[in-house]
């Protein structure tokens, strides 16, 4: 069990969080679900995770702030941003800050896995 690659799912919407975690586990990952930015940061820094799927609009700490802090502590950790299209500036900023890729909502779960595997392989 501990051999499974752990992926952090930071998404405040419970439905989407469960959807992503479900798909990840189908694909043989172990999903660690968190629902706000503070928990995302804590888990990202403390746990042995291989990638983060990161929402931008989250309570307590937004995804951009989480990304900044995680990227300076673990620059190699691949981050995939998941946000809505009408916040293009956030998306561009996230890429500049070191996120490896981004997807906009709505998204297809298969796409998400394909992209996630891509950024994890490029590591």
């Amino acid at each position: 069990m501990t051999d499974l690659k752990q992926v952090l799912v930071a998404e405040d919407d419970p439905g989407l969080n469960r959807l992503i975690s479900f798909k990840l586990e189908k694909e043989g990952f172990k999903a660690l679900s968190v629902f706000d930015g503070k928990a995302a940061l804590k888990t990202a820094l403390e746990e042995d995770i291989k990638a983060i799927i990161l929402d931008i609009m989250m309570p307590f700490l937004d995804g951009i702030q989480v990304l900044k802090k995680v990227h300076s502590a673990k620059p190699q950790l691949p981050v995939l941003i998941l946000s809505i299209k009408s916040r293009e500036n956030d998306l561009h900023q996230a890429l500049e800050l070191g996120a490896k890729d981004y997807m906009t909502k709505p998204f297809q779960p298969d796409d998400l896995i394909t992209r996630l595997k891509q950024i994890m392989e490029n590591d």
């Binding site: 919407d13 439905g15 989407l16 959807l19 809505i84 909502k105 709505p106 297809q108 298969d110």
Partner: peptide
């Protein structure tokens, strides 16, 4: 968009 993303995502699954 959040409910839309939920609906599309679960239908996809």
């Amino acid at each position: 968009k959040t409910p839309l993303a939920n609906m599309q995502g679960y239908l996809d699954l």
